[in-house]
Design a protein around this nucleic acid. Structure first.
Lengths: 158, 158
DNA sequence: GATTACTTGACTAATTTATTCGGGAATTGG
DNA sequence: CCAATTCCCGAATAAATTAGTCAAGTAATC
C-alpha cells in the first residue's frame, strides 16, 4: 500500500465525480477546472480507473465519466490501488534471494502493516467522503449548466 | 502521511537496530550488510533520525547508533515522519488560495484520512515488530529449507 | 597520533510524478 | 454527411523524489 499524491489525486477526482454526477456524466475538463489537475494527467488516471472497472465512460458530446458502482460500494483502497499499480512493497518482490541468514525480515513485516492500512482504507468509502463533504458543500455553486447555489451552510469546527 | 519505500527502509533499519543492539551500538555498515541498503543512503536516513531524536550516535571505534528510547516507546509513525519530511499532504499546504468556489475540498478530507492512518501507525511500536520478528527468527533454518513460497508479495484485496 | 568509524554536504543517477503535445475514435446534433 | 465534443492513446518532456556515490570532515579509542 503505497500512499502518494498520485493516489490522492485519484481519490479527489473520484470524489468530484461522486459529488457532481447527476444523471449526466462528468467530463474530465470539468474535474480539471474544479480540482486544478491537469487534463492529461486526469486522462491517465481515469484510463486506469476505467480499466480497473471503477468508472464507466461515455464518449461524444454530453459524455464523460460515471462511477461504475454506487459511492458506498467504492472504497478508497480500491481507488488508490487502481492508480498506484506496483504494490510490491517488500523490496525483493517475491524473489527468495533476499538474504542468507533470514529471508528479508521485512517480508511479513510489511505484509502485515500493509494489510492493516489496506484494511483501514477498505473500510472508508466514497460515500463516507461525500457525507463528510456535503455539509459544508450544500451550496453546490455554479455548475456548468448554471445551476445556482442554495444556502451556504455552516462553518466548520476544527 | 506519505507512505513510500523510503519510510519502509527507515523502519527496517530501525528494526535492525532494535534487534541487534545489545550493549554496543550498531554500525551502519552492519545494517547495510544485513538489510542490503546502501551505506550512504543509510547515512542520510540516520542523519534525519538522529536530528529527530529517534537515535543516539556514538562516534569512534566501537561506535554506531542506538535507539534513543526503548522500542516500546518508539512508534512507526514517528520513524516514517522523521524521514518523509514534507507531510504537507493537502497539496496547497495551508494556503487558502486553493480555489474560488470552495477551499480545496481535499483539505479536511486528507487531514482526516491522514489522522486516521497516522493514528494507526502511532499505535504500532518497534517493540511490536520485534515481537513479531523474534519467533520466526529462531527457526531460521527450518524456514529456509521448507517454506519457500508461502508469502505472496502483494497484499491483495481478499 | 594514527586508525576506526561516525558526520556532513554536495553531486549524480534512476525512478516516479506531473504535464504537454499530437493525433486518433466514438458519438451527438445540425 | 459534417462538425463539435469528448474520450482514448502514446510519446516526449519536465519536475520532483528516491537512491546511491564521493570526498572531506570530526570524534574517540588504542
Amino acid at each position: 500500500m503505497r500512499l502518494t499524491t498520485k493516489g490522492r489525486f485519484a481519490v479527489t477526482a473520484m470524489l468530484d465525480v461522486a459529488l457532481y454526477a447527476g444523471d449526466a456524466p462528468v467530463t474530465l475538463a470539468a474535474i480539471s477546472a474544479r480540482q486544478k489537475i491537469s487534463l492529461s494527467y486526469l486522462e491517465q488516471l481515469f484510463g486506469k480507473l476505467r480499466r480497473n472497472g471503477l468508472v464507466d465512460s461515455v464518449r461524444g458530446p454530453g459524455g464523460g465519466y460515471q462511477l461504475a458502482r454506487t459511492p458506498d460500494a467504492m472504497t478508497i483502497a480500491e481507488i488508490i490501488r487502481a492508480v498506484d499499480e506496483p504494490i510490491d512493497a517488500t523490496q525483493c518482490g517475491g524473489r527468495e534471494n533476499c538474504h542468507d541468514d533470514r529471508r528479508c525480515m521485512t517480508h511479513e513485516l510489511w505484509a502485515g502493516l500493509n494489510a492493516h492500512i489496506f484494511g483501514f482504507l477498505r473500510g472508508v468509502t466514497l460515500a463516507d467522503l461525500v457525507a463528510q463533504q456535503k455539509p459544508r458543500q450544500t451550496d453546490v455553486v455554479v455548475m456548468k449548466d448554471h445551476r445556482v447555489a442554495t444556502a451556504p451552510t455552516t462553518v466548520d469546527a476544527a
